[in-house]
Amino acid sequence: MAAIDFPAQIKDLRGTFASIEQVSDVEGLQATVAALSEEAAAPNLWDDPEAAQKVTSRLSHKQSELDRLGRLRSRLEDLETMVELAQEEDDPDLLGEAGEELESVRKALAELEIVTLLSGEYDAREAVVTIRSGAGGVDAADFAEMLMRMYLRWAEKNGYPTKVLDTSYAEEAGLKSATFEVKAPYSFGRLSVEAGTHRLVRISPFDNQGRRQTSFAAVEVIPLIEQTDSVEIPENEIKVDVFRSSGPGGQSVNTTDSAVRMTHIPTGIVVSMQNEKSQIQNRAAALRVLQSRLLLQRQEEENAKKKELAGDVKASWGDQMRSYVLHPYQMVKDLRTHHEEGNTSSVLDGGIDALIDSGIRWRAGQRNDAA
């Protein structure tokens, strides 16, 4: 095994860490933590539980960012000390430990660097994800359900709370569509690179002749609306229909007309909600998602206008962004980043961090090229 050039490697890591600190704005983080800590200490904080939850959640997230930077700074310093001690005492075992720690710190820096690339206007928001089955019949509906499970498992593995807002089941199997929230900071920034058309190639379990089937599903990711966004929707622009919630195969899960379908008349955007207990709750959830979609649409229109003025007519996203091939070989490939994963079972069980990270790096490169 070739000897590790520790001074050069550590210098490289320190350079990466310095860049991360600069982008992270440590002084700004410290000021934000101090201000939020003062808010959290207010005796009347929990008079408004929803506002209090937002303050404590944001404080926890910002404090975690600071702590993470502090831990990495300490690990870099400890690594230098370990290398110096090992070289002074000519201790190969300690040098081996230093090599392992070097790789561990490198990995931690790479993960932290991803967070610094989430600099879009809404990247720090929570996410609302909608999955719709596309071409491919019952296989497409089944694929939509597989994707929903994949994202929910990904959130579970990362400790991100989720809330299913709406599920529309297909007649034979799978889902026509589903909408859920991922309630964690930066979940929109991370999951927004998953938006687009996903393709599945496999031997269809629904074909009695065992033929290969290609099916499609669409993933939409929008940032969760906040009260400060001020997306006002006049009442005369909204059509609201109520209906009875239903489960798989049409089985009734509610004996009252509590489900809500909300249509934004000017744009034709339709949002359905049925997983809350009351019509009022479903209406509030539908309005929140509708506002989020209009907010994202407004941002996309602004970006399109900027590109038009700049003479850039390239599409940011292709119609098909990822393929999941289960036959005749096993591979998941992102068609934008060319990142490949051979363990398809792991990917479909939520192991998509590497795919998401490569997508974030790709997007950052696209933004830099367009700047």
Rank of each mutant, 00 (worst) to 15 (best):
T56L: 12
E97Q: 15
I10N: 04
L295W: 07
G250P: 05
S64F: 09
V325N: 06
Q227N: 14
E145H: 02
H198R: 01
T56A: 01
D319A: 14
L191P: 02
T197H: 04
L309V: 14
V128C: 13
D5H: 09
L175R: 00
E220C: 00
G359C: 07
S168W: 00
K62V: 13
D47Y: 04
E65Q: 15
R261G: 00
V138I: 13
R125C: 12
T267R: 06
V332M: 10
A170L: 02
G247K: 07
M321W: 03
I360A: 04
A195N: 05
Q87F: 05
L76S: 03
D142W: 02
L175M: 00
R288Y: 03
E65P: 01
G268C: 08
T256G: 03
R363T: 08
D90A: 14
L294S: 06
G247H: 10
H61P: 00
V128R: 05
T214F: 09
A31L: 11
R58T: 15
N158L: 13
I233K: 10
A170F: 05
E65N: 10
S60D: 10
I238D: 05
S345M: 06
D142E: 11
V26I: 14
V270T: 14
K107G: 02
F243R: 04
D25V: 04
E302F: 02
A218P: 00
M148W: 07
V105R: 04
E84K: 13
G196E: 07
V193R: 00
L290H: 08
E300S: 12
Q209V: 07
R190C: 06
A370M: 12
K107D: 06
N282S: 07
L117M: 13
L348V: 11
S192L: 04
F17P: 03
D229P: 07
R283L: 14
E97C: 03
R288F: 03
A144L: 04
T267W: 10
A195S: 13
E77W: 01
L224R: 00
Q281I: 01
D349C: 06
R190Y: 15
E111L: 11
E145A: 14
H327C: 01
G137K: 06
A217I: 03
S246T: 15
Q297M: 14
A195Y: 02
S245E: 13
H264G: 02
R199E: 10
I20L: 11
R244Y: 09
V26H: 01
R58F: 00
D139G: 00
R212W: 10
V271A: 06
S177M: 05
K163F: 09
A127H: 08
K306H: 07
N303A: 14
P205F: 10
E145I: 00
G268E: 11
E65T: 10
R298M: 06
